[in-house]
């Protein structure tokens, strides 16, 4: 399933947040959206998920306009992975993932055998089956993030939206989570993620979209976007971008650290 956002504009009251934004994500592709805090990434995601409806422009999933679709229909098209969080109640990992199947059962019933199987295979796929009976609040942030990804998988949608999946994670867990997300894209999911880290965006994405002050600043391959000029525009600091390992990796170094060469 592909997702296309065309000429999207959104205002909070008088304040424009998004201005004529275009996004296109295809199956098998990991699209990373980068940009400083408060540029409208979350608003864009909320529009794509159908949580905000008062936008101008058009959002299509698989060619179908999503405006006015009910929550149930939306949940069958697109799944959301919020930042790793701490819920009010300590659910078991199994129950947490099982919640993703809610849309498949009628309002007055609870998920059954079929849904249990989905949960087990999703946990297996992400390599976290051993956590099944643990309490969700008693495991590490990286594990919690993988569990929320598993929950999105059992929802059985073609499109996944991830809001800074590596925020609040330690270095090892960031790589672990991003690797899994990359695998999912290779398996044919359409994935759109927000990230704070241009180096990660370069290493893992198929395409990168830079948003600045509510507008799309640039959209293209990682090597076209993660450049000195664009990073400077985006983050308003002087950055030296170094290419390593035959351009498999790019490192962004603030110039203030190394002094002007």
């Amino acid at each position: 399933m592909s997702i296309t956002v065309s000429n999207l504009s959104f205002n909070y009251g008088e304040r424009p947040v998004l201005d004529n934004v275009n996004v296109k994500a295809e199956p098998g592709q990991l699209l990373s959206i980068i940009g400083p805090n408060g540029v409208g990434k979350s608003t864009l995601f909320h529009c794509m998920l159908g949580l905000l409806n008062s936008y101008k422009g058009q959002i299509k999933i698989n060619g179908k306009d999503i405006k006015g679709l009910g929550v149930k229909d939306m949940a069958k098209l697109i799944a959301y992975v919020p930042q790793s969080h701490y819920p009010s109640f300590n659910f078991s990992v199994f129950d947490m993932v099982l919640m993703g199947t809610t849309v498949q059962v009628s309002a007055y019933s609870t998920p059954g055998k079929e849904q249990t199987k989905l949960v087990e295979s999703a946990l297996e796929r992400l390599g976290i089956a051993h956590l099944k009976h643990r309490g969700y609040t008693k495991i590490s942030g990286g594990e919690r993030q993988l569990i929320i990804i598993a929950r999105a998988l059992v929802q059985q949608t073609g499109v996944l939206i991830l809001d800074e999946p590596t925020a609040n994670l330690d270095f090892g867990n960031q790589i672990l989570v991003l690797t899994q997300i990359k695998y999912l894209a290779k398996d044919g999911y359409t994935i759109v993620q927000a990230t704070h880290n241009p180096e990660h965006a370069f290493m893992f994405s198929d395409r990168v979209l830079a948003i600045h002050e509510g507008k799309v600043l640039a959209d293209g391959t990682p090597s076209n976007i993660v450049t000195e000029e664009l990073m400077h525009k985006l983050y308003s600091v002087d950055i030296d971008v170094q290419s390593l390992y035959k351009d498999k990796v790019r490192v962004c170094i603030p110039k203030i650290v190394i002094g002007d060469k």
Binding site: L49, V71, M74, A75, P82
Partner: peptide, 23 residues
Amino acid sequence: FLLRWRINVLTLGDDEARTMGIN
């Protein structure tokens, strides 16, 4: 009693519940 499973999803907050198909 009948809606008890859905109350679980609601404990995660409104936005998250909506993306999982709950009004």
